[in-house]
Design a protein around this nucleic acid. Structure first.
Lengths: 207, 207
DNA sequence: GAAGAATATGAACATTGTTCACATCATGCA
DNA sequence: TGCATGATGTGAACAATGTTCATATTCTTC
């Protein structure tokens, strides 16, 4: 009878898209399987034809975020060869991404998402985003992410500083107007200043 | 008839205690209101005589964590007056706390808990823990947490580095054996090395 | 010992993630 | 063309969760 009842098209993409919008506008708590299904006009159980469970859907959203961040880093990498300038630009871009997508950023680095190492997209994007920078720092080919991180305090410190500053910013723990780019840039510059100083001091032979 | 049905004693404390144990042993996902109630032998609705909702219960647990961390910092502060040594000890203690209570640490700095600024315990403990260190760095009385953080990049950087390193460690993103104190200390020393270098470079007049 | 505040109980409700039997669509093969 | 088969949607159901509310019990205080 009702031949109109069925939903056609690319449901999987629509689900991820709807999920991203809900996450952005209403936060993770509002991002339920049923809500996303309702949003694209499909019954809840239909979601499970495309994702094993809610976590898998969230992982897809997070993977999209990593991809976005990766592309951003890739673009910046080609823009300059001057180490300090590059690092500064990275920090600015990174913090701006976090400021524009705070809920997505939190999801990407939430315990649940980080715990899912199975997802190659996450793992790969994460390695690429931070690993590339670290490798560039130590010299091409010299960086082994599987090695003890204590040997690479700068790689660790770069990520720690970026992530820590991003978290403080989006959680309102630091008085920065997230809607103003210059304010974010100032914050990025301040943090990077400490980092660069630290690396310079620790590696006097370099540069 | 059944005069035995009622639960006596300090239910509130028991709830928090049970919640802490569940969090430590089984993670945040297992920490439901009903589960905690069951654990101390009380009906779920009884919880609401002591906490407004689940989040309030979690906040109490987090507040306990902050208190613990605060005490730890306080103890270290009295141990030495040498700035760099103190900072190093702080980092070691901080990372060890995170390593010993990873789930609690994640809860303490989760978006939900950070968002609840209403809770004075959280706010106060957080200010005390990191604010004291920052103030000590800039000189007594010179640090205003309400001022622009860009003016205090070191305070920001200290927290960022500590938090970032802790997160990477407990999420397994860095190859450190969390059960071994020396390994954690090495990690702490590496991170602090960068920080101290950065501050030294940026503030050549000092020290 | 009784009044009233605290606090526990038990039943209920809406919402959630998830499963399952069944219906419908799409596609390739006879 | 017709039909079998796999993919995908539907609708109903289940258990678990947070939360509320009326009721019952205990504790405190005069």
């Amino acid at each position: 009878m009702k031949t109109q009842a069925y939903h056609k098209g690319n449901v999987r993409e629509d689900l991820v898209e709807a999920a991203e919008q809900i996450l952005q506008e209403e936060g993770l708590a509002a991002l339920s399987v049923r809500r996303v299904a309702r949003e694209i006009g499909v019954v809840p159980s239909a979601v499970y034809n495309h994702f094993e469970n809610r976590e898998a859907l969230l992982a897809a959203v997070a993977a999209d975020g990593y991809h976005h961040l990766e592309k951003l880093v890739g673009k910046l990498e080609g823009s300059t060869t001057e180490p300090e300038l590059l690092l500064r630009q990275m920090a600015r871009g990174y913090l701006q991404f976090a400021a524009e997508n705070p809920n997505l950023y939190r999801l990407m680095f939430s315990a649940e998402m980080v715990a899912i190492r199975i997802h190659p997209a996450l793992e790969q994007a994460s390695d690429s985003t931070f690993g590339r920078l670290a490798e560039w720092w130590y010299g091409p080919g010299s960086f082994d992410p599987k090695a003890s991180a204590v040997k690479y305090p700068y790689a660790l410190s770069i990520w720690s500083l970026m992530h820590g500053a991003a978290m403080q910013m989006i959680d309102g723990l630091v008085a920065v107007d997230m809607t103003r780019k210059p304010a974010i840039n100032k914050l990025a510059d301040a943090v990077v200043g400490v980092l660069i100083g630290g690396i310079r001091e620790a590696l006097p032979k370099n540069t």
